[in-house]
């Protein structure tokens, strides 16, 4: 586990940002993934006092604070009313309820894990993130960036009627995914997202009217091998899962 010498409860986002400019400092999310690191941290920065633990619904969008837990989004009635089982499906496989009561949306996004269920599913929706300094930017842009020293404050999810279906394959039900796929549609425009390739999730749009859409879509992604699966299997699974997700969304 990491070690930490100091702890600061940030009183403003700006203060958190200032502390976070030092490389030896780190923002404390839920602690679930941070504890896997052996870092020697100078100061832990806590965002708990910044009211970032709320899910707020507005006319056009949801605002989800960085400190909202995975369990919060899983059980939130307003999110369920707008996105059906989507958020539940996104997190239900992640370890267990106690873990999801700790792990935060902000921590999950900022880490940009390759295996991230959250990043894969959210990239299928129309999302933006808000950072202390860079301000608002599309999630896909943020996801592609290298981790930097800015502070993620919240996530915005557009309520524009986009529908998404999420499909994964795992070795065991609570393992990280072997491959994660999402397909979404808005006004006939389709989007495919593939994560755990094992590289980070990426989104591409596709046109199902094209008879070759599935091979073209899958070819837009790169795949690799690791302990959980080979490149060949992942490529094969991408075809299977994207086809299934597309069929599911068409049938909805």
């Amino acid at each position: 586990m990491f070690t930490a010498q100091n702890y600061v409860m940030a009183s403003s986002l700006e203060e958190a940002y200032t502390f976070n400019q030092k490389k030896a400092n780190a923002i404390l999310g839920g602690g679930c993934f941070l504890r896997l690191s052996k870092k020697r941290i100078h100061t832990l920065i806590d965002l708990s006092a910044l009211s970032l633990d709320k899910i707020e619904e507005f006319d056009e969008e949801f605002r989800i604070g960085a400190m909202v837990t995975l369990r919060d989004v899983e059980t939130n009635d307003a999110l369920r009313a707008s996105f059906g089982d989507g958020f539940y499906e996104m997190v239900r496989h992640i370890v267990g309820v106690q873990f999801r009561n700790c792990a935060t949306i902000g921590g999950s996004l900022a880490a940009r894990f390759g295996f991230s269920d959250i990043l894969t599913f959210l990239l299928a929706l129309d999302c933006e993130v808000e950072l202390a300094h860079a301000g608002r930017m599309p999630l896909c842009e943020y996801a592609a960036m290298k981790p930097d020293r800015d502070v993620l404050a919240c996530l915005y999810v557009k309520k524009n009627g986009r529908r998404a279906v999420y499909q994964t394959v795992r070795q065991t039900k609570t393992d990280i995914p072997v491959l994660a796929c999402a397909v979404s549609v808005l006004n006939g425009e389709y989007r495919a997202v593939v994560g755990a390739r094992p590289a980070r999730a990426m989104a591409v749009s596709f046109d199902p009217a094209d008879p070759d859409w599935i091979s073209k879509t899958v070819n837009a992604f790169s795949f690799g091998s690791n302990m959980r699966a080979s490149e060949e299997y992942r490529r094969h699974l991408a075809v299977v899962l994207l086809t299934r997700a597309y069929n599911a969304i068409r049938e909805e």
Partner: peptide
């Protein structure tokens, strides 16, 4: 953070006490 043996309630909610500082 995988086994759940350390589960305690924090303000009534079950959490992993290994992960919560």
């Amino acid at each position: 953070s995988n086994c759940g043996l350390c589960t305690v309630h924090l303000d009534g909610k079950p959490v992993l006490s290994c992960s919560v500082l």
